[in-house]
Write a protein that binds this DNA or RNA. Structure first.
Lengths: 200, 200
DNA sequence: CTAATTTATTGAACATTGTTCAATTAATAA
DNA sequence: TTATTAATTGAACAATGTTCAATAAATTAG
């Protein structure tokens, strides 16, 4: 039983998020419960509700951290290497690799329903937006003549596509065997898309 | 209170699935519960468990019907019209239109976790596979020189892409305003992809 | 037509869930 | 040492999925 002032609010917060991340990774969203998190960190349910509005709020923060972690991976890719096309292909591999390694965590990002007030907080939307920045960078290098809004749209079309293949593969909805198929298919998607995009 | 033999097993089954579909459409997956379905059809929870293994099983059948309904829509598209490229663009519009109209039902198809034994039944996998047939038909017309396995992969790459954009739009993860953006983005994805695919 | 048998349907019971908040207990101030 | 403050608890509530002995309606036998 934790004693008063054993941990600061922020420490408890961090412990709770870490515990939740572990549970989700191992058992998926259905394995998660407020009481399990509490038990894991040596506090009781009540304490969690002093720090998070509710369990949805807690999960939203877990998801925010998942996005952040993927962003780190994507943006730390060495830009130096060769051409932008290769870089984009590599970004997709990193993306898929991340989604596979942390598949339960990644799925929760999309399983989690919107808040009751139906608005995602601004800090979360920002992290979503950041997911496309690396893609935009390379696309604008490949097609310097395109306008910023064309680049923005293209990044969302292409990366939405990569995401779709990845998710279908994770959820076993591709009607195809093997997980490496996601890699092959995204490479094909990117190659063909770029052919049209850079020509147009 | 329903009396014995008021309805056959199949009738109760159909009533339960219809009720579940309505609840999901209106309130989403979280609004669904065994007791609500039972109350809606005038039976009690116990009866549902005589017909379905459990609630997951029931939802799996709802999802199967959702896939079937989309398949009907996609395959009834008049093939006669113009070229295959136009047909593919139209297929995407139908797909997105369906996903938006029945967004809660469509989301459940992907929110729903795999069974505990982790295997999706064969009848379900079949319906998943059918989602790609119309796409394959048009792709093979556009690129007659490609092998069947190339066509199969291309259909999954392209349609996975369409799906990704669609889902990101539905779940508000595109960092872009307006739902019509899904339409614009998929059209761009298809046009550019085909440019590369038919050339390569 | 009644009694015995079968079986469709019930609903109470159980464990578990999210969430709240008066009660408690430890730290701090007086 | 006592009084005050506030961090933490955990019992309580409503709702969930699931089970299965009990019930009651239909069917069959006598």
């Amino acid at each position: 039983m934790a004693r008063r002032n054993d941990h600061s609010r922020d420490e408890i917060r961090e412990m709770a998020l870490k515990a939740a991340e572990t549970i989700i990774l191992e058992k998926g969203k259905d394995g998660l419960s407020a009481r399990k998190i509490a038990q894991e960190i040596g506090y009781t349910v009540g304490t969690l509700y002093l720090i998070f509005k509710n369990l949805d709020d807690l999960i939203l923060h877990v998801n925010g951290r998942t996005l952040e972690r993927l962003y780190e991976k994507l943006s730390s890719e060495q830009q130096s290497s060769s051409d932008s096309k290769t870089a984009l292909l590599q970004l997709a591999k990193t993306y898929i690799n991340f989604a596979e390694n942390e598949s339960n965590r990644w799925k929760v990002v999309f399983e989690h329903r919107a808040q009751t007030d139906n608005t995602t907080p601004e800090w979360y939307q920002e992290r979503v937006g950041k997911m496309f920045t690396a893609v935009e960078t390379h696309l604008s290098r490949l097609a310097p003549h395109k306008s910023p809004s064309e680049i923005k749209d293209a990044a969302r079309a292409l990366w939405g596509g990569v995401h779709g293949i990845c998710m279908l593969a994770l959820t076993d909805n591709l009607d195809i065997t093997g997980v490496e198929s996601a890699d092959t298919l995204t490479q094909s998607l990117i190659n063909n898309y770029l052919a049209g995009f850079t020509a147009g």
